[in-house]
């Protein structure tokens, strides 16, 4: 945008500005800052990184962090492949039930994580689930095990890649793809050489957002994981456990780690978007 539009400054401008800053400050900025402060600051002792030392030397805590990372990365990969292909399907093809499918895609964002967990338990539960006993008889345990955690994580972060990719796919249109096809490129070549570079940035935003959401999933994971120490306890579950066991310092430290990752994810998207806007 060449010219910046700005309303004339009146007292109202300043009143609104102050309201917004105060609201965001009280609701978000100050509390988030306090978590960082509490993670490093122990009353009567001063600043210390002791809590972090304890986390990194606790094998069970390390296991929880590792499990969170594995589940988040696998769920993100699944959503990347699935998200790009379903976006292609929704934008480039016509089929009956398309409108319903595209309405359903957003569903995971508006369903309670507890309901997500319950739904997965009802289907994949080992004892009474619809598919659970069959899977168990071939040796695959889903609920109270890592696959269940991955499923729950993939469920809640499902729409994020799709929501980023679909508008871009619609915008770039099909002309270049048709040109490539008419010059003899296979469908696969067209996708790799033409479509994918076009949607590259949207895919990257989607992946970063998915990763942030996946690392932090709590409710759905709590229902499906069983929270077994050293086996299915994830980092977010550990935060709750530590806090309830009066290990506030530890809880704040893990929370600080998780919060840092998500803030970094936001900053990455923020910087990429700003760059994208400049390039355009």
């Amino acid at each position: 945008m060449a010219e910046t539009r700005r309303s004339p400054r009146t007292p109202l401008t300043y009143v609104l500005r102050i309201i917004v800053i105060a609201y965001l400050g009280l609701l978000v900025a100050w509390p988030v800052f306090l978590v960082g402060w509490n993670a490093f600051h122990v009353p009567d002792v001063g600043f210390t990184t002791q809590a972090f030392g304890e986390i990194f030397s606790d094998p069970q805590m390390m296991h929880a962090i590792q499990l969170t990372c594995i589940a988040a990365v696998v769920a993100t990969l699944i959503n990347l492949v699935f998200g790009v292909s379903i976006s292609m399907l929704l934008v480039r093809t016509e089929f009956p039930g398309k409108r319903i499918l595209s309405a359903m895609i957003d569903l995971p964002l508006s369903v309670s994580p507890i309901v997500v967990g319950l739904a997965l338990v009802l289907v994949y539960g080992g004892r009474e689930g619809w598919l659970g006993p069959a899977l168990e008889s071939v040796g695959i345990q889903v609920i109270f095990a890592t696959p269940g955690i991955i499923l729950a994580t993939a469920f809640v972060s499902l729409p994020l890649v799709i929501r980023e990719v679909i508008p871009v796919l619609e915008e770039i249109g099909t002309e270049q793809e048709q040109a490539a096809a008419s010059l003899g490129a296979s469908t696969w070549q067209t996708f790799w050489r033409i479509t994918l570079p076009g949607i590259k940035w949207a895919v990257i935003y989607g992946v970063v957002l998915t990763l942030a959401r996946s690392l932090g999933e709590f409710g759905a994971v709590k229902v499906v994981s069983g929270n077994v120490l050293g086996q299915t306890r994830t980092a977010t579950l550990a935060v709750e456990e530590k806090y309830l066991n009066f290990d506030q310092q530890g809880a704040y430290a893990v929370a600080f780690l998780l919060a840092s990752v998500s803030v970094i994810c936001i900053l990455v998207v923020f910087v990429l978007r700003a760059r994208g806007a400049r390039v355009r």
């Binding site: 965001l24 978000v28 977010t236 709750e240 803030v263 900053l267 923020f270």
Partner: peptide
């Protein structure tokens, strides 16, 4: 509006979305 520190507000808006919910609870508790 345009003022110093607006970019920071942009980032703050997104924090509740990206922050793990359990951490959000802890954050407010503090």
């Amino acid at each position: 509006d345009k003022f110093w520190g607006k970019g920071l507000l942009e980032v703050i808006i997104d924090i509740p979305f990206a922050l793990p919910t359990i951490v959000a609870g802890l954050v407010l508790l503090s």
